[in-house]
Amino acid sequence: MALATRTGRRPSTTRTLWDSTVGKKSVMAVSGLIMLGYLVVHMLGNLKIFFGADEFNGYAHWLRTLGSPFLHHEWALWIVRVVLLAAVAGHAVSAYQLSRRDIKARPVKYAHKRRRASYATRTMRWGGIILALFIVWHLLDLTTLTVNERAWAGHPYQNVLATFSTWYGNTIYIVAMAAVGLHVRHGFWSAAQTLGAGNARRDRTLKFLANALALVLFAGFVSVPVAVMTGVVS
């Protein structure tokens, strides 16, 4: 009898995930959440700057000895770096491929233009690119110290002060943090939907959480350059 049957072997879980728009989007969601978690910790660590150079530099040193004696010097840090690198790569490659696909799926624009969706939603792509560029600068500035004015290894407090003593350092940083806020605002809610955590009842809570995270991250990060500019931290 000619009944429809579906007997074909399915590809592996990884293949299914990576070949599907829904799967790629969930890669973005998971990697985004990893980065978001890192950002929250990073922001909290930054706030130590308000307790003076010794505490801040001590914290930075502690990060390198984290997990000792079980972990060798800086191993914990490298583990975090590798995870983050993977997250950034997964996030960026998925974003790039999905964006290419999305643009191809809508080749002709409407003649009658109209503003669509929220600002945060519409700026996800550009915001992402800005953030990627910022990360490069940020690493060159405060990790490798290549472009830092002070470049005093092992003394992040002094290096941070040096960065935020320049107009361009402040500008780049504050613009990037605004991008972080917007990106997180849509990204967090979006990740929840992608991972299937969203439903009608939970929607308000998720939107509130997304806004709160965005605001707290922005305020926490930006408080440092503002404090340097206003002389609260010197």
């Binding site: 728009t21 989007k25 799926a105 969706a117 939603t121 849509h186 992608t194």
Partner: peptide, 9 residues
């Protein structure tokens, strides 16, 4: 050939 969802609503 449909695009992916960016949850614009």
């Amino acid at each position: 050939g449909f695009g992916g969802c960016t949850l614009t609503g």
